[in-house]
Write a protein that binds this DNA or RNA. Structure first.
Length: 269
DNA sequence: GTCCCGACGG
DNA sequence: CCGTCAGGAC
């Protein structure tokens, strides 16, 4: 990629220097508990820090260990998640807790090394948990870090992930991974923002109003209160039956709801 | 309208 | 590779 070691060192200095003066004090940075870090990372997937803070604090107070979460009911978990968005994440986090307790003896870090077995945990999240929990010499490239690298090293926005992750490994100050990644996050979120750089995120989202996402959320809210009939949902949400049926199909497949005959209930644990 | 410490299925 | 998934802040 012909990026000099000199340039890399300069970027490291600049970002670490920024971090010493402007670092954010976030609740999940006060712990090295892999379970709590995992909760924070799943919540932070495509969700702003400011919106995660209270959800995270409430969550870890209510379910302080992965064993507590594994014993929780699906309804409790979804109730606590509602409002954060991308509700499938809650189901997957709950399932992950159960799998980690039953198949990994509660060892979150061990599970992160076999993240392909844990749905809802990809390479980014698996590495991030290990980095922030144990200061592991791994790299994780999120939307902030991607933007920083593109800007600092003059890369095209079309740069493949593979190259970004390779470059990230060259930039990693070994033995200082946790601080380095926190520094990158803060530099990207506070200083080198999407607005100031004009660099667009990898995936853009469709409009929310009138979308299936909006209807999915409305359905979940109703079913969370009590079981509903198909007709009741159709009347309340004012959506055509065919579309409602399709949406209910996807919600069922993702194990958020359960359909029995014409009744719709929250999916059991 | 745009973005946010991604992951998944097709 | 491409579309989908919440919700609020700006």
């Amino acid at each position: 990629m012909q990026i000099s070691q000199k340039k890399i060192t300069a970027v490291q200095r600049k970002i670490l220097s920024f971090y010493r003066q402007h670092h954010r004090d976030l609740p999940w940075r006060k712990t090295t508990d892999p379970y709590k870090i995992l909760v924070s990372e799943v919540m932070l997937q495509q969700t702003q820090v400011s919106r995660v803070i209270t959800y995270y604090s409430n969550w870890v107070r209510r379910w302080p260990t992965i064993q507590h979460l594994a014993r929780a009911s699906r309804a409790e978990v979804l109730e606590a998640w509602m409002g954060l968005g991308y509700n499938t994440r809650a189901v997957r986090l709950h399932q992950a807790a159960k799998t980690i307790v039953s198949a990994f003896d509660g060892d979150v870090l061990g599970a992160m090394q076999h993240y392909h077995d844990i749905r809802g945990v990809g390479r980014y999240t698996a590495h991030a948990v290990q980095i922030f929990a144990t200061n592991a010499n791994l790299v994780a490239v999120d939307t902030n870090i991607r933007r920083i690298f593109i800007k600092e090293f003059y890369l095209p926005e079309s740069v493949p992930d593979q190259q970004l992750w390779q470059l990230a490994e060259r930039c990693l100050p070994k033995g200082n991974s946790r601080t380095w990644h926190n520094a990158l996050m803060d530099y990207g979120a506070l200083h080198m923002t999407a607005k100031t750089t004009g660099i667009k995120p990898k995936t853009s989202q469709s409009r929310f109003s009138g979308s299936d996402r909006q209807i999915r959320a409305a359905i979940l809210r109703m079913v969370l209160k009590q079981d509903c009939s198909f007709k009741e949902l159709q009347r309340q949400l004012n959506v055509d039956p065919q579309r409602l049926d399709t949406i209910l199909g996807s919600l069922s497949k993702e194990q958020l709801i359960l359909r029995k005959n014409t009744m719709i209930a929250l999916h059991p644990d």
